[in-house]
Design a protein around this nucleic acid. Structure first.
Lengths: 191, 191
DNA sequence: CCTTTAATTGACCAACGTTCAATAAAACTT
DNA sequence: AAGTTTTATTGAACGTTGGTCAATTAAAGG
């Protein structure tokens, strides 16, 4: 009943994700519809479903890369030739910076309640947390226990979650983030 | 074109809110539709809009009471005849308990990005935070500054936000919450 | 040139939030 | 009691969403 597009460019997962990403970054998961993505690319909405099984899979494909980016960021900080305490603070502030410069991504990575999305998350959050926890253990020379490590994560999460919600950018709250991290930092050493 | 319901019971905001609340508590904002609420009450969906201007207003009306409940909870803790440090810990754990026993409410109170909902929030979150901050200031005998107070809030928020997302109940994480609060508590005194 | 496969389309579905003219019940007025 | 006004309810309608799928044709392989 319906023709097929002339072949100037076939759709690929890459092309779709590229279009989806820019919409996603500015508008967030809920305000981006499959139809808008298709319209932006000049295709019908049905074609998206040939490449992705549903909206959740498409957006998880974007977010999967963000887990890699976060993991890589942690690795880079660890690879710096700096004193352990400097690197430790860099890890803490780095996590906040990541969260606030990819707010809509962070939301899906660590904040969504959507069951459909969660079904795609797999081990992404766990793996990133493992990296984070290892970094803390290493840099503190094992002086902090798992309970404290987890608590530090939750504290950072609280900061990111709040400023995600308020919509402020990282550069707006850099100073706050630094003193927040300082409080966490000193309380880590005390334990 | 359409008749009007026989008069066994006229709809009121109260009745609607009551029906909405039970659905809301179990299913969350996004999974509760105006149509489901109306169906549960045996009315047409249009009738809801006579009593509430839209979905956001209806659910904010529910959440408004939760701000009162939270404020009241804080007042009750402050009114206890206990040492200040005991009350201080009760405030911290009380906030977490509140958040995790009203997860879908907490989400709208402190976690939503939905602009329509935010437009109804007004001073609700600020007012509750003021109460919380005052409690901290009073109970710590002014030894903590505003920056620390705000940080303590963000830390608690992180705990609640995470376990809201994971869907666990307060009684499942009571132990964790207590040690988390202890870490915060000792770091407060250190500052 | 013929056949097969792969990709695209758009009609279609169920559900959503929201609006609104039509309606009738209820409350007033006389 | 009759007439009028107000108030609450209805459901059709609109636009939008995520998702499905038979029909179709472009491209690939023979």
């Amino acid at each position: 009943m319906a023709p097929r597009k002339a072949v100037n460019q076939e759709l690929t997962r890459e092309i779709i994700m590229e279009a989806a990403r820019t919409l996603f970054v500015t508008d967030g998961y809920r305000n981006v519809s499959i139809r808008k993505i298709a319209a932006k690319l000049g295709y019908s909405h049905g074609s998206i479903y040939y490449h992705f099984q549903n909206k959740a899979e498409l957006f998880y494909a974007l977010v999967e890369r963000d887990f890699s980016a976060l993991n890589q960021k942690l690795d880079e900080i660890l690879a710096q030739r700096n004193p352990a305490d400097v690197k430790l603070q860099a890890v803490l502030i780095g996590f906040i910076e990541f969260g606030l410069t990819h707010q809509n991504h962070y939301e899906i990575m660590f904040l969504t309640k959507d069951e459909e999305i969660k079904s795609f998350l797999n081990q992404g959050p766990n793996k990133s947390y493992e990296k984070f926890a290892n970094a803390l253990q290493t840099l503190s020379e094992k002086t902090i226990n798992v309970q404290t490590t987890w608590s530090v994560f939750l504290m950072l999460h609280g900061f990111v979650a709040h400023y995600c919600q308020s919509g402020q950018q990282f550069h707006d709250v850099r100073g706050l983030a630094e003193s927040y991290v300082n409080i966490i930092f000193t309380s880590m050493l005390a334990s």
